[in-house]
Amino acid sequence: MNLLDGLWGVLDLLLVAVLLLLAMAAVLSSDRRRSMMLFIVFGLVLALVWARLHAPDIALAEAAIGAGLGGALLMATLRRDTHQQTDQFPQHPVVLWGVGVLVMVLGTAIAWGLFSVLPTVEQTWRKGAAVDAQLAFSGVSHPVTAVLLNFRAWDTLLELAVLLAAIFGIRALGYVRSAYVTEVAFSQLAVWLVPLLILMAGYVLWAGAHSPGGAFQAGALLAGAGILLRLAGYSHAGLPTTRWLVRLGLVAGTGVFLLVGLGLLGWGQGFLHYPIAYAKWWILLIEMLATVSIGMTLTLAFMGGIPQKEAA
């Protein structure tokens, strides 16, 4: 037992050391391309940290959305840069050190504040206890999904609106990446990986009701399939070619979420107040459409906008 705890201690120290070194290198490196690579690896190590801290939902999301999609987005900015790019700090070293001292003071203040309360509340469960007590009435048995889709559904609804705002902004920039280098390797990979990703998305979505997973992770997997298709040379990345269908798909998640909420209000239940007996089904419906919307949004974000009608 003692030995096991000791091993965990070593593992923790190693993980944290690697994480912090990667972060420092990503921020400090003068080579932009290297900074991006380091950041992507940082995301993968972070996913391990989440798993270590018993946060499998976040580990899944971090690997798919943070490191995976974030990495793909970063690489999309880089692709055309053939020459090496160095970033020097324009400021005088005194400023660099001065700001460094300032942020360390702020960090110390945060740590001081946090550690003055943590030992006393270490074992309290905070809102976890309330979640546990009400879980049976939430319609799902996985606590994180219950918080996201029921107890704090309003946050999630607005979060879907945030995704919409970002994609509308991207679309407004009127920019579609002109040409990708179509890699034969990608198209071969796509043949078997895309169906697999879609199947996995379906599973992760379904599993979210009782175990880690849910709409965001599933949507990210769908987006992975879309990005792969795009890289394999499919100009629409598997999205519908009918433009209004794309727009409908983008807003479907938010729209159904909002309409269910308002419908329940009109029904006399109160906004987003699911009747206990049907909560499971409402949540599943919302999650399914949200998965489609998230997948389409993230794919489009990678592509840089809705595809224009391609001239023959």
């Binding site: 309330a130 107890f151 704090r152 109160g270 107040h273």
Partner: peptide
Amino acid sequence: ELALGGWEIGLGI
């Protein structure tokens, strides 16, 4: 003050 979802305020928003 509106407790969204009908949950006690704090657990719900």
